[in-house]
Simulated assay, not measured.
Amino acid sequence: MTEILQTPKLVVVFGGSGFVGRHVVRALARRGYRIRVACRRPDLAGHLQPLGNVGQIQPVQANVRVRWSVDRAVQDADHVVNLVAILHESGRQKFTSVHEFGARAVAEAARAVGAGLTHISALGADLNAQSDYARTKALGEKAVLETISDAVILRPSINFGPEDSFFNRFANMARYSPVLPLIGGGQTKFQPVYVGDVAEAVARSVDGKVQGGRIYELGGPQVLTFKQCMQEMLAMIDRKRLLVSVPWWVANMQASILGLLPNPLLTKDQVLQLREHNIVSEAATRENRTLAGLDIQPHSIGSILPSYLWRYRAAGQFQRKTAA
């Protein structure tokens, strides 16, 4: 009797060529899924090919602001993952067009082909937030659930990992600057989450192991203030730097100037975000809408940071360990 081989599910990942995307693609590839990576520049997505077998990963051109390209990208999909987000506005890339219009476009396209949907939002998303980033993230969640009621929504805290733009940015700054700024005194609380854990949560939702129609808040095992994050980072790279408190009004002035740069170090909207703690809520913990609720043991920053921050040490990987 001839055995009929079942074709693996096709998963379309919007924003799959980015920081979180490459880890999501790796987690899906390990499970044997066929993966179509929808991104604005597929010619720059070659780094994804080694993550899977020959022909398993296919980059295609799509822009969540252009509806017909979204519809084309999701054709024949079994599941859709939307990772697209921006940290600051530039050109046509606006918070509303990407976080709200884009989220609805992806959701409607997924519904049209009968595909499941996993949407990545952000911890701190709030319809009443002063920050445009946080408010439009919440509007995107609303659009998704209005379109597909059983969609899975994941809200991660600050993601850390080899290619992150948080610890890497400040570690690089510490190589040249004798001081590091602590906006608002550095008392804002964060719950940094390893990007690999977020990717695993996404992959489990594609597996069908995550209950839909719920919003999950993903944070790591430690709650740290911004100042403590900087102290942990400096300890990892074995450098001593002066941590200087920057009052909110000074930060706003700096953001007004820095925000004009093509790739700004700080924007006024980011200053607004820093006024709010970025940690998993008590309600999410109580209702098991966390990594623990998904049976994922989160990695601590102490177990991951040394694997990639060593390059910021004075002697790199040959730096001698200092006695505690």
Rank of each mutant, 00 (worst) to 15 (best):
P178L: 05
S149H: 15
A107M: 03
A129W: 02
E89M: 10
S165T: 11
K189F: 11
R169N: 10
S131Q: 01
G161P: 12
S177Q: 08
V84W: 12
E141K: 09
P156H: 00
A122R: 02
V98E: 09
I120E: 00
G91K: 10
T118D: 08
T136K: 00
V106E: 06
N168S: 10
R175S: 11
V84L: 13
N128D: 13
N172D: 12
A134V: 01
G184R: 04
I183T: 04
V179T: 15
G185L: 06
F101D: 14
F160G: 08
L154A: 05
T188L: 03
V144K: 04
R111F: 09
L117E: 09
S165K: 14
A112G: 09
T118C: 14
P156M: 01
V195W: 00
S177A: 14
V193R: 13
R169Y: 11
N168L: 07
D164E: 03
F95I: 09
F190N: 09
R169S: 13
G114P: 03
H88E: 13
K142P: 00
V144Q: 06
Q130F: 07
S131E: 00
G186S: 06
V106G: 06
E163C: 08
F190M: 07
A171P: 08
I153H: 07
F160A: 08
Y133R: 01
K94A: 13
L127P: 02
E108L: 02
D126L: 06
F101K: 13
A109Y: 01
V193G: 13
G114F: 05
Q130C: 05
E89Q: 14
N128S: 14
V152Q: 04
A109L: 01
D164R: 02
G102C: 06
S157Y: 07
I158G: 07
D132E: 11
T147Q: 12
V113N: 01
N172R: 14
E141L: 11
H99A: 10
G196F: 06
E146M: 08
